[in-house]
């Protein structure tokens, strides 16, 4: 299933890396983005591993080169990530910078969209308001002459960091 996810995500232009430890993944983040990055909500183990990173303030989000976020689930059939981004500031953090890096636990990869229905429904109703983002590959357009061009309003690069063997 991980391989299927990887193939589907790469087919739509995402960069996929598989790591056996959070520390390795954190090192990849540092190396890809430099030090200052925006972030959405991260689980504790990941936040700890990213101790070398300076997390920027909301006002700076529009100028930082990259952001990190965490996916609740991955969809193998399409290479999609389910991001819970109900907080507008966190959402902005994942929408503005040119590089978007997403942590995904291998165990959270499910086969297809229909099998995600229950999870989405409970995420939608578990809080007073919610904003879920199913993200597949980088931002794209084909509005000029049908030529596919990557990175129009959203991130130009999407890196998926799969955490395996935990």
């Amino acid at each position: 299933m991980i391989a299927r996810f990887q193939a589907a995500a790469e087919a739509v232009g995402a960069v996929v890396r598989r790591f056996s430890s959070v520390a390795d993944a954190a090192a990849y983040v540092l190396q890809t983005s430099g030090h200052a990055i925006a972030a959405s909500h991260l689980p504790d183990d990941i936040r700890r591993a990213l101790s070398g990173v300076t997390f920027t303030q909301p006002e700076e989000h529009r100028d930082v080169p990259a952001c990190v976020s965490f996916a609740t689930a991955g969809v193998a059939a399409t290479g999609s990530l389910l991001l819970e981004l109900s907080d507008a500031v966190e959402r902005g953090a994942t929408a503005l910078p040119p590089i978007h890096m997403v942590f995904l636990r291998a165990s959270a990869i499910i086969p297809d969209l229909p099998s995600l229905t229950g999870a989405i429904d409970s995420l939608l109703s578990s809080r007073p308001h919610s904003y879920l983002s199913l993200t597949t590959g980088p931002s794209r357009t084909a509005d000029i002459e049908r030529v596919l061009t990557i990175g129009v309003h959203g991130p130009k690069e999407l890196h998926i960091l799969i955490l395996e063997g935990e």
């Binding site: 059939a77 999609s80 507008a88 939608l124 308001h129 904003y131 983002s133 199913l134 597949t136 590959g137």
Partner: peptide, 20 residues
Amino acid sequence: ATGQKITSYVSLIRGPSEGH
């Protein structure tokens, strides 16, 4: 529509975000 399996973003929005 365009022969894509899914688009880059599918957003599901329920209610306004905090402060919005």
